[in-house]
Design a protein around this nucleic acid. Structure first.
Length: 299
DNA sequence: CCCCAGGGCCATA
DNA sequence: TATGGCCATGGG
């Protein structure tokens, strides 16, 4: 329902908590691609060829999406709303997942403690892949710092009320960088090569989200793992966060292993098949279980 | 000083 | 197919 030409209100799904979603976005790291201010979040968004800034906040029992900038395009507000719907995964009915959790002795506590947490996505596939490469093997504090350097050096921004809001750099720009330039931002040589390679794939249109979305699951995984710098962990992370596939397990993930170790009450890193036993009953909801297990790491 | 962080590539056997 | 070194940096 359109309440004016700048703001639209969208209804929330049954199992939804805005504050749980914001907690994920603001769990102690300093993400440079959105800004949390109390009970609202600002997100810069490209709409058509324009750079806009949107705001999302909870008002009574609805979510309010506001286009803070120009937004002259007729369908700008609809595009912004579609983005928020995808970002917060609003169209998924979590009831079946909660039923599985509730019948799981080890994990049923999550449905109250983390009630309404949604799989916060990274709709931009290029950004998602770059973020994976950046985050590989290093601690998240350093990973967010690396991302910020990349974004603030090569990204564009919009200024609103005296503050800058950055957009992730365009692949065409990153494709032209040298390894040396990225190493100056403290990227390792491998990370620099991977980022530039992925940027080239997008710049010459040999890879796109639309292209990938038309494939079957196995084909998606093999196409992704064909990219230098993309292994099993990254492929699954990207399919979960960008393509919204429900059945992904980020094998090899140290955070997931820490969480599973705690669930199984082990004093060591779980083996692959031990991780899988936790997921056995969650066919079709593996991605959400990963999200909820990660959530246990940031109390 | 050590080890390891929300991995993946490459050389070697 | 399996294993080990390597990468960059910072926090414990």
């Amino acid at each position: 329902m359109d309440i004016n030409n700048k703001t639209i209100r969208i209804s929330k799904p049954d199992i939804f908590s805005f504050s749980e979603c914001l907690h994920f976005l603001d769990r102690g790291y300093d993400d440079c691609l959105y800004t949390i201010d109390g009970d609202r979040v600002f997100k810069p968004l490209r709409i058509g060829d324009r750079q806009e800034l949107i705001q999302v906040k909870e008002v009574d029992d609805v979510l309010e999406v506001t286009l803070l900038t120009g937004g002259t395009a007729k369908d700008a507000l609809r595009i912004a709303t579609d983005f928020v719907t995808e970002w917060f995964d609003l169209e998924r009915d979590l009831q079946p997942f909660y039923q599985l959790l509730n019948s799981d002795d080890r994990l049923s506590w999550m449905t109250e403690r983390f009630f309404g947490l949604r799989l916060m996505g990274i709709p931009d596939l290029f950004e998602a892949l770059c973020w994976c490469v950046i985050g590989q093997q290093i601690n998240l504090t350093f990973a967010y710092r690396l991302k910020r350097k990349l974004v603030e050096t090569y990204g564009t921004f919009i200024t609103y009320e005296g503050r800058r809001y950055y957009y992730f750099p365009e692949p065409e720009l990153l494709a032209g960088l040298t390894v040396k330039e990225l190493k100056e931002l403290q990227f390792s040589r491998q990370k620099a090569e991977y980022i530039i390679g992925i940027a080239n794939d997008f710049a010459d249109n040999s890879l796109s989200k639309k292209h990938l979305a038309n494939m079957g699951s196995k084909q998606m995984v093999s196409r992704l793992m064909n990219i230098r710098g993309v292994g099993e962990w990254t492929a699954n992370y990207v399919l979960m966060k960008s393509l919204r596939k429900p059945d992904c397990i980020t094998h090899g993930d140290t955070g997931l292993q820490t969480a599973v170790s705690s669930v199984l009450d082990l004093d060591r890193k779980p083996k692959r098949d031990e991780v899988e036993t936790v997921f056995d009953a969650y066919t079709g909801w593996e991605s959400y279980l990963v999200i909820y297990l990660w959530r246990t790491l940031s109390q």
